[in-house]
Design a protein around this nucleic acid. Structure first.
Length: 282
DNA sequence: CGGTTA
DNA sequence: ACCGG
C-alpha cells in the first residue's frame, strides 16, 4: 500500500466498527475472516503489510485481500477530495489518522453483522458473529482455520430459536425474518447493491431490523457507497460538539453530513467517528 | 417515546 | 438501533 498505516490506525481500520471478524494476536498480528477467506496480517519494520493464509486457501487470498483492503487506492487522495480546507475539525481528524480507509466487505455478511450491531458494542458484536460462524457456518479449509459466517440461504434454513441460541436476543427475530425475506427474492440483495444510493438505501430499509443507520453502514462498508453517512451516537456527539448541531435528529444530521462533506461523506464520517472514539478513551 | 435481548 | 403506539 502507498500509505501503510501505523499500528493504531490499522487497528481502527480492522477493529474499529467497520468489521467484526478481525482478532488481534500475540505479537501484533491480526487474524481476520471475510467471505470464505481467512488470513493473518502482520506489519514489517516499515509498516508494510504482509499476509499469510492456510495453504488450501492461499491461492485466492492475496487478490481477495487487496480488494478487501481497497489497497490499490491511496487513502490520502481519497481524503484530499474532502472539504478539509474549509473545515478545520475535519482537517485535524484526517491528520490524526493517516491512512485510515474504508473496507470493501461482502454485502451479504455486512448486512448480517450490522443486523447484530443494534445497541451493542464492538466486542459483543464480535462474540455474536463468532458464535454464528461456529454454530451455523461452513468450515474453512481445515478445522483449525475456523468457519465462515452462515450464508443467507443457510440462515433461512434455521429457526429463530436456533438463532436465539447464538445470544442474539431480539436481533434473532430480525435476522430470521430478513433471511425469509431474502429467500423469497433471489438476487434481491445483489440487485440492491447495484442501485443508486437513495434507492438502495430505501430498499434495505424494507428489511426487518434495518433502519437508516444500519442501511448506511451496509452500503458504506459492504457496497463501497461512499456517499452513505451512518449516524450513530458517536456521530451525533461529533456533530453536536464540533459542528454545533445540538438537538438535531439523526435523519437531519445525515442530510447535513451528505451535503456538507459531499460525495465521499462516508469517508469523512469514518474520520469523525475515529476521532470521537479516541477522545473518549483519553 | 419505551420495549425489545442477555 | 429499530419499531410500534
Amino acid at each position: 500500500m502507498r500509505t501503510p498505516p501505523e499500528p493504531d490506525v490499522l487497528a481502527e481500520i480492522l477493529d474499529g466498527g467497520q468489521a467484526f471478524r478481525w482478532h488481534p494476536q500475540p505479537g501484533g498480528e491480526w487474524q481476520g475472516f471475510w467471505g470464505r477467506h481467512v488470513v493473518r496480517l502482520r506489519q514489517n519494520a516499515r509498516r508494510q503489510l504482509a499476509w499469510s493464509a492456510p495453504l488450501a486457501l492461499a491461492g485466492p487470498a492475496g487478490a481477495a485481500l487487496a480488494r478487501y483492503l481497497d489497497a490499490r487506492r491511496d487513502p490520502r487522495l481519497l481524503a484530499d477530495a474532502l472539504p478539509w480546507r474549509s473545515d478545520a475539525h475535519l482537517a485535524r481528524c484526517i491528520d490524526a489518522f493517516p491512512g485510515l480507509r474504508l473496507l470493501r466487505q461482502p454485502l451479504d455478511e455486512t448486512l448480517l453483522c450490522f443486523l447484530c450491531s443494534a445497541t451493542k458494542r464492538i466486542v459483543q458484536i464480535k462474540q455474536m458473529t463468532a458464535l454464528l460462524a461456529e454454530r451455523l457456518g461452513q468450515p474453512l479449509a481445515d478445522a483449525a482455520a475456523g468457519r465462515a459466517l452462515p450464508t443467507w440461504p443457510a440462515l433461512a434454513a434455521t429457526t429463530e430459536g436456533e438463532l436465539r441460541g447464538c445470544r442474539l436476543g431480539f436481533r434473532a427475530r430480525h435476522i430470521h425474518q430478513t433471511a425469509q425475506f431474502l429467500a423469497a427474492r433471489p438476487g434481491w440483495l445483489e440487485e440492491t447493491g447495484a442501485r443508486p444510493y437513495a434507492e438502495a438505501r430505501a430498499r434495505l430499509c424494507q428489511l426487518p431490523g434495518v433502519g437508516e443507520k444500519v442501511a448506511d453502514c451496509v452500503l458504506l462498508f459492504g457496497a463501497g457507497r461512499l456517499e452513505a453517512f451512518p449516524v450513530d451516537v458517536w456521530i451525533i456527539k461529533a456533530m453536536e460538539r464540533r459542528y454545533g448541531l445540538q438537538g438535531w435528529k439523526p435523519a437531519a444530521i445525515a442530510h447535513f453530513g451528505r451535503v456538507h462533506f459531499g460525495e465521499r461523506a462516508g469517508l469523512a464520517q469514518q474520520y469523525l467517528f475515529a476521532w470521537e472514539r479516541r477522545e473518549a478513551r483519553k
